[in-house]
Simulated assay, not measured.
Amino acid sequence: MPVSERHEVPLRVAVIVGSVREGRQGRAVTEWFLGAAAGDDSLELDVIDLAEVELPLVMPGWGGRPSPEAVAALADVSPRLASADAFVVVTPEYNHSFPAALKNFIDWHHAQWQAKPVGFVSYGGLGGGLRAVEQLRLVFAELHAVTVRDSVSLHGPWSGLGQDGEPRDAAVCAGAAKGMLGQLAWWGRVLRTGRAELPYAG
Rank of each mutant, 00 (worst) to 15 (best):
R80T: 10
M59K: 15
W108P: 03
E54D: 15
G119D: 01
P117V: 03
L130E: 04
R131Q: 08
W108L: 10
L57Q: 10
H110W: 01
G124Q: 04
F87P: 01
P66N: 04
A84S: 15
E52K: 13
E52R: 14
G128S: 10
P56E: 03
E54Q: 14
G61Q: 03
G124H: 04
T91H: 06
D49R: 05
L102D: 04
L126N: 07
D107V: 04
E54I: 00
K103S: 13
A111Y: 01
I106L: 09
P99Y: 01
M59G: 12
L126V: 14
D41S: 15
P92V: 04
V89W: 02
F98R: 05
L57E: 10
W108N: 09
Q135S: 13
A70M: 09
A101T: 05
W62K: 13
G63C: 07
Q112S: 13
D49N: 10
A82M: 10
L55R: 09
F105T: 07
P66Y: 02
P60C: 08
A115N: 12
Y94M: 11
V133L: 10
D107P: 00
V133K: 07
F98L: 11
G127C: 05
R65Y: 00
I48Q: 13
S83C: 09
A51F: 00
P99H: 04
K116R: 15
H96T: 10
V58E: 12
D76I: 08
S67P: 00
T91G: 14
V88A: 15
A100V: 02
L102N: 04
V118T: 06
V118P: 01
R131V: 05
P60D: 02
Q114F: 03
P117M: 05
E54W: 00
V88I: 15
F87C: 13
M59E: 00
H109F: 02
N95K: 12
K116I: 06
V121N: 08
V118C: 09
P79R: 11
A86S: 13
P60M: 08
R131F: 04
D85Q: 11
S67R: 08
R131E: 00
G119T: 02
P79F: 06
Q135H: 15
A84G: 11
L126A: 15
F87D: 04
P60K: 11
I48H: 07
H96L: 14
G63S: 06
G63E: 01
R131K: 14
L74V: 08
L45A: 13
K116Y: 02
E134I: 07
A70I: 05
G125I: 05
H96Q: 11
A73R: 06
F105Q: 07
V77L: 11
L43S: 13
D46E: 14
V89H: 06
A132L: 08
N104E: 01
F120C: 09
T91I: 06
E44G: 13
G127R: 06
G127A: 14
G119H: 02
I48G: 10
D85V: 09
V133E: 03
L81C: 12
D46S: 15
F87A: 14
S42T: 15
N95L: 10
E52T: 12
V88Q: 08
V121S: 12
G63L: 06
W108K: 09
L57Y: 08
G128Q: 03
V77N: 08
W62P: 12
A111G: 05
G63K: 06
H109W: 00
P99K: 07
D41F: 00
R131Y: 03
